[in-house]
């Protein structure tokens, strides 16, 4: 465990928990894509299949449980909570899961570290995580509006991406045989998509400021 990895895990954890706590507190999920949240729940469910079979550390197991619990809680709130689900932009959040899930599954069947159920699911979870933000991006482009909730969530996710890349670079130079092409390439794609998301975020933020200026 290095400082970049820890910082990456903590910002990732905070992104999910901040989102969950805010939805719980303000009883609103306006601007948040349920499609993206469902994809993230699927990402964690398929990646952590090893939770009871491979013990890595107490830290690892607890983090996995928190990610699983919080991501499924967010989906539950957005689908089932009677106040929260009213604030959901259903008409705007039309991205089909299928278009992301199917190519990722096919890619995982072809590109994996080992052709076993767990390894294919693990590769699938990495590919899916890389593109799971797309429905959120589409929703953001449509509504052209980004509030504090979405802003903080995106900022924390972006920080998580950046720290993980530093972690891989650090591990590559400090650990022998640390080469993980699948993780790195899908992680890089994911980070590039976040850079795109950040671009829209700052544009929207800038436009909102402009709108408040006197004509």
């Amino acid at each position: 465990m290095n400082i970049f990895r820890l910082a990456g895990d903590m910002t990732h954890l905070m992104s999910v928990l901040v989102l969950l706590l805010k939805i719980h507190t303000i009883k609103s999920c306006a601007g948040i894509s349920l499609k993206t949240q469902e994809l993230y729940a699927l990402v964690f469910a398929t990646r952590y299949l090893d939770i009871f079979t491979d013990f890595i550390s107490v830290y690892n197991t607890i983090m996995k449980l928190i990610f699983l619990g919080s991501s499924f809680s967010i989906v539950w709130y957005m689908r089932r909570h009677k106040l929260v689900r009213r604030s959901y932009d259903k008409e705007q959040d039309t991205f089909r899961h299928f278009f992301l899930v199917l190519p990722c599954l096919l890619l995982a069947l072809v590109m994996n570290e080992k052709f076993t159920f767990k390894e294919v699911m693990w590769a699938f979870s990495l590919y899916l995580e890389a593109v799971a933000i797309l429905p959120q991006l589409v929703l953001l482009q449509r509504t052209k509006n980004i509030d504090n909730l979405t802003g903080q969530y995106v900022f924390l996710l972006g920080a998580y991406r950046a720290f993980y890349i530093f972690n891989w670079i650090y591990r590559y130079f400090t650990e022998p045989h640390y080469v993980h092409w699948i993780t790195w390439i899908s992680g890089l794609v994911q980070t590039l998509l976040y850079a795109d998301f950040f671009y829209y975020y700052f544009n929207s933020w800038k436009n909102n400021v402009k709108l408040h200026l006197p004509a």
């Binding site: 990646r47 690892n60 996995k64 570290e113 080992k114 693990w122 993980y164 993780t183």
Partner: peptide, 10 residues
């Protein structure tokens, strides 16, 4: 061992 693939990252 070489056969088992262990993923220690989250």
């Amino acid at each position: 061992d070489q056969e088992r693939v262990v993923h220690d990252e989250l």
